[in-house]
Design a protein around this nucleic acid. Structure first.
Lengths: 210, 210
DNA sequence: TTTTTTCTGTTGCATAAGTCACATATTATT
DNA sequence: AATAATATGTGACTTATGCAACAGAAAAAA
C-alpha cells in the first residue's frame, strides 16, 4: 500500500503521549492478533508484512488478506461469521500500532500531534483499505487458476512498474492466497511457462507477454 | 446493511442546499453508473437494490458486489485493474445520491444540516462497507460450490433471524454472485435437498440443520 | 389475451482442478 | 556441520465443476 504519508517515521518523531496507542514488535510467524468480536481493535502495520489467515475444520488454510506497510486491520473491520479461527500472522518481523477504534475516533484530550495527524490521514488509509479489498475480490472472482495467476502477476507487475519481480509469497502461500490447491497451481504455472507467457527463476517471475 | 441512521428519510427532511449532492432515481435494470477512473464519484444508495457487475471478454458475467439500503459505492473505492466493463445496475427501482468524494470531505460552506450529519455518519457507513467486503471475501474463499451455498444461506439466515427466507437473487444471479456455473450450482442445490439440509419452495429457502 | 423473453431444472460429456504420494531442494534449528 | 523441517516440483488418479443443449415454467412485453 503506497501512501504519501509514512506513519512509522511520523510516529517516531512525535510519539503518542496520550497512551491510547500501543506499539509492539513481532518476529516472523508470531501471531499478532486473533479476531474475536467485541474488542473493536484497529491495528496499523508500521513495518513488515503480515497475513490474515483462516484455518477451517478440514485443515485447509486460507490467506484471507495480505498486509504491508500502512495497512489497517483488526476486528473493527470484521463481522466474524463462521466459527473458523482467524489469525493475523507476521510474515516477516513487524511493527504494529494497536488502537481501540472508539478511542481513536474521539478527539484527543492531550491534543498530541501524532494523534491528530493520524486522524487527519485516517480517511486516506481507509480508502486504501477499501480499494485493496476490492482488488482482492477481483482476484478471487477470476474463473480459473490460470486467470488468477495471470491477474496476480499483473497486479504485482504494475505495482512494481516492471515485468520482472520477486514474489512476496512462497508458492505454498500463494496457493492459499489464490484459494487453489498448491499442486494444481504448480501444474498451471508449468503450463504458463510452456506456453511462453511466464518465466520463473527461483523466486523471480518474468512476464513475457505484451 | 443495517444502520441506525436512515439517510433517506433524513435527506427528505433536511434536503441538501449546498448543491454538492445530486439525487437521482432509477428503474429496474437501468445502469446507475460505470466505473471509470478519475471522477472520484461516491454514491449512496438511499433505497432499492443494485449490483456491481463485471462483463469479461468471454461473455462471463460476475456480480462483484450487491448493494442495498445505505450502501456506499462508486469508483473512489475502486482501483480499476482490468479492462473489463464494470457497471452498477439497478436490481429494483433505486434512489441514489451522487457525490464527488473530495467535495464531500471538505466542510460545507453553507453549513447545511444534511451535509454535516452525513459527514458525521460517514465513518459508520464506511465501516459497514468494509465489513461487507470482508464478508464477501469470506464467501468467495469457500472451497466448494456446496460450501459457498451453505455459507450464503447462513448469512441471509442470520441477517433475517430466521431459518426461512426469500432469496434476494434469482438463481441465475446467485450463480454469478457465488462465481460458479449456474447448472453446476443447480446440481449442488439438488444434492443439498437430497441430503436433507435445505428445502426450497419457489423462491423460499428453508434451512433444516442445527 | 397472446407472444416473447427470461428463468428454472435437468442431463451427458469434457476437462480443470483437487487428492495423495514421493523425491529433491531449500531453509531453519541444533 | 549435521539434522530437522519446510518448500518445490512432478506424476497417477479421482472428482467437482464447467459447458452445451434442451424442455417446461414463469415473468415481461405486446
Amino acid at each position: 500500500m503506497d501512501t504519501s504519508f509514512d506513519i512509522e517515521s511520523f510516529f517516531n518523531k512525535f510519539s503518542c503521549d496520550c497512551k491510547k496507542a500501543q506499539r509492539k514488535t513481532f518476529s516472523k510467524n508470531q501471531v499478532i492478533t486473533t479476531y474475536i468480536q467485541k474488542r473493536n481493535q484497529l491495528c496499523i502495520l508500521l513495518s513488515g508484512h503480515a497475513d490474515l489467515v483462516r484455518y477451517d475444520l478440514n485443515g485447509n488454510r486460507t490467506i484471507v488478506e495480505h498486509f504491508s506497510k500502512n495497512a489497517l486491520f483488526g476486528e473493527v473491520f470484521y463481522q466474524v461469521t463462521t466459527n473458523n479461527e482467524l489469525l493475523v500472522e507476521a510474515r516477516s518481523s513487524c511493527t504494529v500500532l494497536f488502537y481501540i477504534y472508539d478511542q481513536l475516533k474521539e478527539p484527543c484530550t492531550k491534543n498530541c500531534e501524532f494523534h491528530s495527524t493520524l486522524s487527519e490521514h485516517l480517511p486516506e488509509l481507509i480508502l486504501n483499505k477499501i480499494t485493496d479489498l476490492n482488488t482482492r475480490i477481483e482476484l478471487l472472482t477470476q474463473r480459473s487458476t490460470r486467470d488468477k495467476l495471470l491477474m496476480y502477476f499483473s497486479l504485482i507487475s504494475t505495482r512494481k512498474l516492471s515485468k520482472t519481480f520477486e514474489l512476496p509469497f512462497s508458492l505454498t502461500d500463494l496457493a492459499d492466497y489464490l484459494n487453489v490447491d498448491r499442486s494444481a497451481m504448480m501444474r498451471e504455472l508449468k503450463l504458463l511457462k510452456e506456453d511462453g507467457l511466464v518465466e520463473k527463476i527461483g523466486n523471480r517471475i518474468i512476464l513475457l507477454y505484451e
